[in-house]
Design a protein around this nucleic acid. Structure first.
Lengths: 137, 137
DNA sequence: ATAAAGCCTATAAAAAAGATAGGGTTTATA
DNA sequence: TATAAACCCTATCTTTTTTATAGGCTTTAT
């Protein structure tokens, strides 16, 4: 399951995507809209900024705004950023690979093989669906 | 990511599947084979038994054994049993549905739509791949 | 009788997730 | 130029979940 962090990030991006006409959106407004803790969301937006998805303006009249086109933000990127691996097993993760401690041999492991399939099908969706796609609703 | 519980369960089932000629397999042997805590694994096997996947024989000479054919144990069943939902969001889970607190309207939520797709593709694999499939390696 | 093995429940320890706190810095504007 | 608004940053606290352990009970082969 996606963490709240990731869910909040996706909702915040959606909100920002829907308010692209405005120069900057307040953390406060996003938090209120979704009933999220202001401070918690602040940390999340900061991460999104550091990752290059958002820009911000400090001081009075400041706020956050998208600095990428919604179609250039794949959902896989957001999930990986906040939640880490998308794969169901570390031994199958493309971005966070680690061997499984309890597994004798990766090449002889059938679990591994199935989870590679799951990963590939999942990524086929999450790397192609972008913020643009979730804005449409 | 799958929990250790689920991973251990899958490995234990695999072990049992590969030792179906034997009347009963000791927890101890499975635990040792994969470097798992005996007592932790004991709890897991008990769950698998209660779920109707395993049988057991008590007392001296006892142990665990599969009571279903490997091709009749879909991986989705094992994962749901130990880990709960397979879906990435509660609002999209078939077996553990719950609305998302931060979400205003499910029908107007684009995140929801994408996660339904991911769920469906994932289940297409995990409901059709069985213990039989991971035994082959 | 005894020892081996699973059954069962409770509790503890560790890790991760979620949330809060508070001072720092920047900036518009009166 | 003082002030208030807003983001920046890091640390800490709390809660929840996961992982692991403990220990006695029951069953059964020998």
């Amino acid at each position: 399951m996606l963490s709240k962090k990731t869910k909040y990030a996706l909702h915040a991006l959606t909100y920002l995507g829907k308010h692209r006409d405005e120069k900057a959106v307040l953390i406060h407004d996003i938090a209120e809209e979704h009933g999220i803790s202001h401070k918690f969301l602040e940390n999340i937006l900061l991460e999104l900024k550091k990752a290059g998805l958002l820009g911000s303006k400090k001081g009075k009249g400041g706020g956050y705004y998208l600095i990428k086109e919604p179609q250039d933000i794949p959902l896989s990127k957001v999930i990986r950023l906040l939640d880490g691996p998308i794969a169901m097993l570390p031994c199958v993760s493309l971005n966070y690979y680690e061997p499984c401690a309890e597994c004798k041999s990766e090449v002889e492991c059938g679990i591994n093989k199935v989870m590679i399939q799951v990963r590939d099908e999942t990524l086929k969706i999450l790397e192609n669906k972008t913020l643009q796609d979730i804005l449409k609703f």
